[in-house]
Amino acid sequence: MKFTIKVWRQNGPKDKGRFETYPLDGIDDDMSFLEMIDVLNQNLLTEKKDPVTFDHDCREGICGMCSMYINGTPHGPEKATTTCQLHMRSFKDGDTITIEPWRAKAFPVIKDLMVDRSAFDRIIQAGGYISINTGNAIDANAIPIEKDLSNEAMNAAVCIGCGACVASCKNSSAMLFLSAKVSHLNLLPQGKAEAKRRVNSMMKAHDSEGFGACTNTGACHAVCPKEISLTNIARLNREYIGASLTSEKE
């Protein structure tokens, strides 16, 4: 297969950045999208040029590191698929493929397609945990948890923190990410004790990192590689209002 690759090049956070266009030949339809970029980079290196910098690691759709905005969609055209799990058979021979980094104020570009997502870490640090020190736990079967409830928590916990939700959102809101964590922990009995504190403090961190507000367009869910449901955002709002009305502090 043959492609024309139009890719964002930006040599560092302060560089203005621009698109560069590269023709690419000899691509196999069984290759993954990132292997296609590997080939492009090997070609660039053969010409003694700087290869395209991009984030990637596990290449099996779970680490959440890969982050490419492909033809106007985070992670490209396939539903529920990360960039690393996207294959070239999803494109037509001769296509022009446009690749950009995540674009959001809270995710500054480091180089080319690589962005800084440490804002997500700071949201988790604000309360995305259950406060239990090592060694304090009771027997795991001491608290039975309804299977459906546990499944619902798991459905939220599968978030890989890639940031596609933010990249797709016109407000660069991270509500889907935030709501997935709040749902995962607040649904479970273990997470109830600090549920109110958690939602208040994580919401505050979300806003101070520069993520925008949610206007319920649902773009985030549409591109989420793990299909995190919008129900989580509804739950987050409910938890937040409840916590705001009843918390004594914060």
């Binding site: 259950i130 304090n136 736990a137 079967n141 299977k147 995962h184 273990q190 997470g191």
Partner: peptide
């Protein structure tokens, strides 16, 4: 025990265990 207490959503049976 530690992981369950942290909220790791392990698979469960209908009885909740």
């Amino acid at each position: 025990d530690q992981c369950a207490a942290q909220g790791v959503p392990f698979a469960r049976e209908y009885g909740g265990l």
